[in-house]
Design a binder for these strands. Structure first.
Lengths: 73, 73
DNA sequence: CAATATTAAGGCAAATTTGCCTTAACTCAA
DNA sequence: TTGAGTTAAGGCAAATTTGCCTTAATATTG
């Protein structure tokens, strides 16, 4: 029972996280700390390896001072 | 190692899925079929039990003919 | 009321994510 | 070059989600 996995959705999130993180001059580790998640997850998310949860999307958006929706468009 | 779980994010998704589904006159089962996911997942998502993935958010939005971002605002 | 449709609830195994860890590769300033 | 900082890569156990299933509860329609 493989999980639903939308490469396009995952890539959109990956690109946006990286874009906004760089724009704020944050390292992956700094972003992870601000978001309250593991540093290696940020790396995996940005590389498009993870079909992560909406809670993580909200946490990342919060850490980046943007709206969650901005990470999905 | 509990996963990050943002009740507020989960509730927002729950309410939006239900709202748009009802607006389109779809049963949970019909929506699940359109989205390509299990019917019981729709039930659990609408009840706020599941911290689901961005792929599922995109699939639901697609099935509902709305943008993924609309499910998170 | 009776019957049908819809939703809630929960169990289970398998798949996936998460957090924690280590190591290698790469960048860049001194 | 050297060293510090950052990122990539991957392993692992535990937690969570997913799909599949059954049954009960609730709505809705005839």
């Amino acid at each position: 029972m493989p999980q639903l996995r939308d490469i396009s959705a995952i890539s959109i999130l990956a690109g946006n996280v990286r874009k906004y993180r760089i724009a704020k001059n944050l390292s992956q580790e700094a972003l992870a700390n601000l978001a309250g998640i593991e540093y290696s997850q940020v790396s995996r998310i940005e590389r498009g390896l993870l079909n992560t949860s909406i809670s993580v999307v909200f946490a990342l958006a919060n850490a980046l001072n943007i709206k969650p929706t901005q990470l999905l468009e």
